[in-house]
Design a protein around this nucleic acid. Structure first.
Lengths: 349, 349
DNA sequence: TTGTATGCGTTATCAG
DNA sequence: CTGATAACGCATACAA
């Protein structure tokens, strides 16, 4: 900038104004500056700018990990929305570890990000470390795995509704003993999915049966184990709603291994719309979590808080509507139909 | 820092030294400073530090997108390795668009990142924009989709070997007319996979048949179309090696739809080890791309260049060995074995 | 519309 | 071992 100023015989202020499209700048001057900047291949230094302004164009993300279907898709949505708004994204993984989550938070604070998006680690029971963020007035939005309460900004899937519509769907197929493979109940998402399941059962006038609810870590293996346990019951279920696709897959595998027909003997529905659900045989009914939309919504909310710029902002919770994707694993059908391979479905990467 | 200095009656220099563990600092003083810093909840400002030092602790990544199996896994590996080394990661998507790739590059430059990791967009034919990075002496490492030549740092899977071992495997199964679903040939990865295929054929003394090589965009749909085209040949193939799992999936679907047995009538092998390959029926033979290792290797190489700190560094290319995962889609077997469901395989998320 | 002067928070240099 | 000072590159308050 100093070079440009010297060469044009003007002050750095003028250069700065021309480059940042300030209003009080002559169009002629502006053109001259921009042209020379091109020629000299001027590269703005966002660090310096951010330091001066006290605000960077960076948004920090903390996710448990970048794997599977969900988090990468959300991050994809976030990055897309953020970059459209002129922000860039710095990403951290907590690896499901609170300690690392805390460290990540420190790092993002010291990086002077303009705001932070967080999905809690599975081991985060104590959330006091986020107080520091709030006390600095730094915009903070949770997504998916959130701190509950209405004094936080959050974007979630309506998990309760997801559990509810899934269970309703199974009931609609004539299932009467519906089991549930639940996840860790201190995480809002799994608690709510279970709640939706219970709500649907109650609404249908079915008694809640604790032996039909199996608590798992959502892995495929525990899905297998859970189904084994369920089938050993005096009165085994005729359907299972799993809070995740992997445990649903395990359950489905085990049911078939034990000679049951899916869905006729055992209807199965999962949660997350993992890529593989469309390829299992039968294709798996599941809930789409609107990953991209969640990322977009989170950014939108965060930008609102950022743009409020310290002005009192009433925290808001956004709930996205889950989409039930009905596929063959839960649609009871005549035996003849069962033989048609499911492999012929279209599948978008 | 100023506050701490005042409170302790020392200079800011001393504070800075204590905080950054400089050698010329008394241990007593150091403890005092650190303690007070804790008390005041001192938060270092990395922007200011980076501005002063001319080097940030940020690594920039440009990927085509964050979806599917490959890129998220590589990013996962990168973030893990980078954070272990004290770096954070700022991520950009090119959306397979050169123009955006260029813009991302500008952004990372102006963010004063310490180094850049790039996987080229599919539409990047002209790579001159990377000259700017080199001319600034900014460390640059390509991964997977790279600029070819030995004057660049790059980490790749040995794609030629991947194509070679896949094709050898199919030959070993007794296949003699092996088709190839190729990808865009201006991308090194697809070119090399095709080359490996051709090498294996030549080595086996089989004539190259152009009608057996179909060029696709690697989508499932084009896999379907390609198989249709192949099956319409006067002499259709007995196996297909696809440069990607999605096109392999499409091909497999279409083959089965036309009544062929996979693998006995048509052996299929893919590339990438997408999550779904273990769930298709039959489970799909594929190549594992060592995503995590690639991320780690890329970071390792980048850190070497960074640590060389401008000293002459001879560019290096690292090639990871692909791993052939043999599954049922390519292993010819007796009819009786075919009936066993493949759904019972274990699958780790 | 333009220029002058100052400071954002940190660290390197040099002198004590 | 410690301190005073300047500088990194940019943007603003204020004056002209």
């Amino acid at each position: 900038m100093a070079d440009l100023a010297r060469e044009l015989g003007v002050s750095m202020t003028t250069i700065s104004r021309a480059l940042s499209d300030h209003h009080s700048i002559g169009p002629a001057m502006k053109q001259k500056v921009l042209k020379l900047a091109k020629k000299y291949n001027y590269q703005p230094n966002r660090l310096a700018s951010a330091l001066r302004k006290g605000k960077s164009q960076l948004i920090g993300i903390i996710v448990p990990y970048i794997e599977g279907r969900f988090f990468p898709s959300v991050v994809h949505g976030i990055e897309t929305a953020a970059s459209k708004a002129g922000y860039n994204v710095i990403i951290c993984q907590s690896n499901e570890d609170v300690a690392q989550e805390r460290r990540n938070l420190e790092i993002l604070l010291s990086a002077q990000v303009a705001g932070i998006l967080v999905s809690l680690s599975r081991t985060t029971l104590d959330v006091r470390h986020f107080e520091k963020v709030r006390s600095r007035g730094l915009p903070l939005v949770f997504f998916d795995r959130i701190v509950e309460g209405d004094n936080v900004n959050a974007v979630v899937l309506n998990d309760q509704e997801g559990g509810y519509v899934s269970t309703r769907h199974l009931l609609g197929q004539g299932c009467r003993r519906i089991a549930h493979l639940a996840g860790p109940q201190h995480l809002n998402i799994y608690k709510n999915r279970r709640q939706g399941y219970l709500d649907a059962l109650r609404e249908a006038g079915l008694a809640e049966d604790e032996s039909l609810v199996i608590y798992t870590d959502m892995s495929q293996d525990q899905g297998v184990a859970a189904m084994r346990q369920l089938l050993a019951l005096p009165e085994p279920p005729d359907a299972v709603f799993a809070a995740g696709d992997y445990s649903a897959l395990g359950a489905m595998q085990e049911a078939r291994r034990q000679g049951l027909q899916v869905p006729n003997d055992m209807a199965v529905s999962g949660f997350s719309n993992e890529a593989f659900t469309v390829i299992t045989e039968p294709a798996m009914t599941t809930i789409d979590q609107r990953c991209e939309e969640m990322g977009q919504a989170a950014v939108r909310l965060l930008l609102e808080v950022i743009d409020a710029d310290g002005a009192p902002f009433t925290p808001r919770q956004v709930a996205l509507r889950p989409e039930l994707l009905v596929r063959n694993s839960s649609v009871r059908q005549a035996e003849t139909e069962l033989s048609s391979a499911n492999l012929v479905r279209s599948f978008v990467p």
